[in-house]
Amino acid sequence: MAKRTEVVLAGLAGQGLVFAGTILADAVGLYEDKFISQLGFFSISARTGPSRSEVVIGDEEIDFPAATQPDIVVAFTRADAQLYGARMRPGGVLIVDSDQECSCLPESLLIYRIPLVSIARRELGEPLLANLVALGAMAALSEVVALESLEQAVASRVPGARTETSLEALRKGYSAGLLAKKT
């Protein structure tokens, strides 16, 4: 069977999850030469409704382009951690925003609690950069994407003055991921 890795980025509309999926898909598809598919699912509300990106990564052309049993999940809310945590492949990597009180998550998962939104707010002055903090953490905690590929994707997609802060968000997330791995 072809190797297939499924990633879900889940949270609320307005948290930039579709954009984060776009960056991840560009990074892996264009700079790591893998096959990818990316889908965004969201309701009609621009803020606070559920929103998620699903990215499938493979060595071969991808047949079904959505997640069936995710290998890696980033959850920005408790509800998402519980919903997708329960559907994940045993041994999968679940990154949860540590400001969310989450209990009862499956013991079969590698669970990392990282203050994604707090890092974005306190260290970068902008909570909306939590999406890129999460991608940086994912690069540190899994084999799915390299930090350099994410940086390339951000540099080509984020214009002008925002490029540097966006790259900084990736790096802050990467460091937080390394720290979480140690502890």
Binding site: T22, A25, G29, L30, F35, I36, S37, Q38, L39, G40, I62, P65, A66
Partner: peptide, 9 residues
């Protein structure tokens, strides 16, 4: 809506 929004290489 799936195919219109789907991104692929």
């Amino acid at each position: 809506a799936i195919i219109g929004r789907l991104r692929e290489k």
